[in-house]
């Protein structure tokens, strides 16, 4: 009969082997599963985007419109001085979509009553950061173009 110590050693060696096996096996299962579940990278859009016809007419009618830029949303609006502005439409608080309130000249998030000024700075409510600002221009042919990436005045 082998000494007790040796027997324990053999058992613990077996346990270590089993543990290595289980951990390695779990990794070999989890790695593919996690890779599989991780969404494929959404293409981030960087170039300028041009507003489509119906977006333009909505801008005309409501003084503001929310447009898609890749995965992001951008609110384009016309302030009381007829100047075009563009801000990220994703509230920095919980990510709701904000809206432009022409009467009060504020950007308002209805979820938790967050208020931003027309440059995206927080005026009131829980939002922790300013909204990202983009430069927005009206071309000579009447079309509206939003420059993605950080606008110069937001820097």
């Amino acid at each position: 009969m082998p000494p007790v110590g040796e027997k324990i050693n053999r058992r613990s060696l077996l346990d270590v082997l089993l543990a290595i096996g289980v951990v390695g096996w779990l990794a070999s299962v989890l790695f593919p599963v996690l890779r599989y579940l991780k969404p494929l990278g959404v293409q981030t859009q960087n170039g300028p985007i041009k507003l489509k016809g119906e977006e333009l007419s909505k801008l005309e009618k409501d003084h503001s419109v929310i447009v898609r830029a890749g995965a992001a949303r951008i609110v384009v609006f016309e302030d009381s001085t007829q100047q075009l502005r563009a801000l990220s439409a994703k509230c920095t608080h919980e990510g709701c979509t904000v809206q432009y309130v022409p009467g009060e000249s504020v950007i308002w998030c209805a979820c938790h009553n967050g208020r931003f000024d027309l440059d995206g700075r927080v005026l009131a409510g829980p939002p922790p950061r300013t909204l990202e600002k983009y430069s927005c221009t009206r071309e000579s042919d009447g079309s509206v173009v939003v420059q993605l990436g950080r606008g110069p005045e937001a820097a």
Partner: peptide, 18 residues
């Protein structure tokens, strides 16, 4: 990847057999 996974599984299998 398959060989690695099989290796780990064989390790477990051998452990269980022992």
């Amino acid at each position: 990847g398959l060989l690695a996974a099989i290796g780990f599984m064989s390790l477990i299998a051998a452990g269980i057999a022992l």
